[in-house]
Design a protein around this nucleic acid. Sequence first.
DNA 1: ATATAATGACACAAAATCGTCACATTTTTG
DNA 2: CAAAAATGTGACGATTTTGTGTCATTATAT
Lengths: 225, 225
Amino acid sequence: MAGGTILLVEDEKNLRKLIKTYLEREMINVMEAADGREALELWDTDKYDLVILDVMLPEYDGWTVCKRIRRDSYVPIIMLTARGEEEDKLFGFDLGVDDYVTKPFSVKELVARVKALLKRSNHQLLTEVIEVGDLKIDKKMHQAFLDGKPIDLTPKEYDLLLVFLHNQNQALTREIILDNVWGYDYYGDLRTVDTHVKRLMKKLKRMGKQIITVRGLGYRFEVTN
Amino acid sequence: MAGGTILLVEDEKNLRKLIKTYLEREMINVMEAADGREALELWDTDKYDLVILDVMLPEYDGWTVCKRIRRDSYVPIIMLTARGEEEDKLFGFDLGVDDYVTKPFSVKELVARVKALLKRSNHQLLTEVIEVGDLKIDKKMHQAFLDGKPIDLTPKEYDLLLVFLHNQNQALTREIILDNVWGYDYYGDLRTVDTHVKRLMKKLKRMGKQIITVRGLGYRFEVTN
DNA sequence: ATATAATGACACAAAATCGTCACATTTTTG
DNA sequence: CAAAAATGTGACGATTTTGTGTCATTATAT
């Protein structure tokens, strides 16, 4: 696969260039930002498949940037931290940071992790069939099934269901749903989400109960493992 | 936070430099203040991940500085006290001091405590799942559990519980709770906090007993480690 | 071109949540 | 001990949030 595009946010120029070089050897496009502000500007203007974020940054620190990005998207994020403590990594799965790399690190290792994450998310996106209970969605066919029988979903309903299935058990705000189903540039009533959720729930019959409203926030597709 | 930045307030220059040296070996940034006034000036102009405060200070004493800082933030605070000030200690816990170190102390020990606190506060904010006894809160799901069963919390109750769990064993004033749950701009009756605490306590069943009222101050979520 | 389906927005209904108050209870103070 | 202060508590109206049906508009299929 042609590696996709990465947003690399690191203020130390030498390190940034080094990482960039290594990544480009893997056929991965790299956009560079030297501080938090620049990072967010780039983020707002283009789409990325992964973000590498130094924690210590001028302008806005890495956490701030991370939080901001997470408002829009679940793009994989790798954090570069300077503290050399194992335990920090243990609790790595925080606001949705996907991986941590502690400085000093080998660039090779970083690249390996990038590739792993890209593959994972690609894989996730390319997985053809997702099954939850008696609900199945076949992306290649672009068709959902309940108890093996096809459900007739409109395009929006289908996309909405896909977003839910890609983010199981995760509370999703109406904004995020809107961004993911209608696109980032769409400018519309948030409550439209409600209407479509309602329609989807109805068509999903008993599986519609899996869509939980999270009051004051949005919705969540709940699966009991 | 890569190493983090600390505000070190100590009037004895030699001791201050010594502590600074040790901390910097751990990749921790240190800003120095020699008296209370300077401390507050630095506090107002920059962000810190932790504060070390000598109790006995020129200009403003440590308690005054502490109180002032607590008006703005829950940043971890370590107090340096002279031996035999038991009353001061009690007083201090109400002010939300996170740790005490009694002079004379080994700088090594102080550094260890600093690292412990930094680690704790970092994790608390970023950890996805917080567990205390049989109580669990999953931020990604936006859902609390008791004995593995979901608890139905209203948005305010949820936020309130989150504030308590992020500040375990720390007495929180109603003002601070109001600021954190309702937002800094909110104008309302302080007693509203009481009502919501009551409701939360009820829903938390036996774990509600962990919320202790601190008379004349506010509340504290107590956890026995 | 016409019929059919999908969409997005809205208004109103329903439900949940909120904030405040009055009064009860507890603790502190003098 | 009585008075004062602080906190606990239940209730209720106001407000906010969400559910739902409908409708005009747009897109799609025949």
